[in-house]
Design a protein around this nucleic acid. Structure first.
Lengths: 212, 212
DNA sequence: GCGGCGGGTGACCCGCCGGTAACATCCCCG
DNA sequence: CGGGGATGTTACCGGCGGGTCACCCGCCGC
């Protein structure tokens, strides 16, 4: 046998820098989602990408930074969706429906990437907390803006109401995900947005006619 | 003075087992709340109790178990309060008000012990996840029971609605805590329970299951 | 063919921290 | 008083895992 051949086992064809980076991010996301930040080892991530550890460090300065990159991506994803739901229509009921749907879609995407945002095990890290808080605040702000405009609530009240609605959407979306199969996505979204809408419409001084 | 004495600096008078255990739990809670599970070192906890590390291990088999003990305490605390809110009255509006109040009080107690439940950085641990989930499920269940009885919703719908309400309460309570000072506890509770009540009352007096 | 460079590797280092072994002290009880 | 069982202490171990060093290939232009 041509045993002289030095195991040319090209494990993974070489990749240009950009492609490798993306692949590493993908691998990292899978591992972080599956095990959380602390339980995830850089070796795991490298292994999953079919590559050795130093490669990882050629692309990212450290574990934390790698994690932050992924986290920011997801935070942006969610806030964008919520903002779109607010901007995409003038009908407040539609807005509520869209926002609730945004949370459900977010939670149901990407093999659980939402865990990075909603279940991060690195919230004690200054940067992580800042990022997550910024995302939450952005969502609350977007919603509170509408509430404030249409009900004349004080800013503090509007923020409280908005935060409550985000909590409603987030928590029910996660519950639905855990119980998946019993209720369809659209059913669940309709149900929860009905709940939210009945709550927030006809609040203090809303001239929006109550839905029949 | 009797300087010959080799530093008899009795740092903390000896304590009987029970008292020491409580003190250690208290110290541990403070450290875990402040830094989270991972960032907390057993030395930190021992130090805070004015005691050396082995003492800790005479009372608890390990870091994880110590954490679990505290976690369970808090989970029980919350679920009990929610259950009481459900059982304490027959008036559903009162029930909502009580439950929302329970979340606000829980979040506002004990120097932030609620973080153990709502912001645990050990959710990847099987036992921790089980405990936290069990607590959430208990709260949702208690609320869903009432919803189901009074609206005739399907169990799945009732659970979804209930989980949404817990999310509403939890998230707004945490928001209120972060913004403390701008709105009083009672104001906030009234506002949020009004939101929840407007939403859940006069809910589909179940005009038949929407057969999707 | 050959130099150099981008892409990649195996092996190693080392600090932190959970956990432990061995030794000291106090106080009660007979 | 003196033995013994709680109660505590100092000092140490060991491994896990983030991060790095020195080196290796294959391809490209000349």
């Amino acid at each position: 046998m041509q045993s002289s051949r030095p195991v040319p086992v090209r494990r993974t064809s070489r990749l240009p820098r950009g492609a490798r980076r993306l692949q590493l991010l993908q691998a990292a996301q899978e591992v972080f989602v599956a095990h959380g930040f602390h339980a995830a080892a850089m070796d795991d991530i490298a292994d999953r990408a079919g590559v050795s550890k130093p490669v990882l460090y050629q692309h990212f300065p450290g574990k934390r930074e790698l994690y932050l990159a992924l986290l920011e991506q997801q935070v942006t994803e969610l806030t964008d969706r919520v903002r779109e739901a607010m901007a995409g229509t003038e009908d407040n009921r539609q807005r509520v429906h869209g926002a609730v749907g945004a949370y459900f879609d977010f939670v149901d995407a990407d093999g659980g990437a939402f865990r990075l945002v909603f279940e991060s095990d690195l919230r004690n890290d200054e940067d992580v907390r800042t990022l997550v808080d910024r995302g939450n605040r952005a969502c609350v702000e977007a919603i509170a803006e509408v509430i404030r405009g249409d009900t004349g609530s004080s800013p503090e009240q509007a923020h409280l109401l908005a935060s409550g609605l985000t909590g409603l959407a987030e928590t029910s979306a996660r519950w639905w995900l855990a119980q998946k199969g019993t209720v369809s996505r659209d059913e669940a979204v309709s149900l929860m947005s009905a709940l939210a809408w009945r709550g927030i419409s006809r609040f203090p001084r809303v001239e929006g006619d109550p839905p029949s």
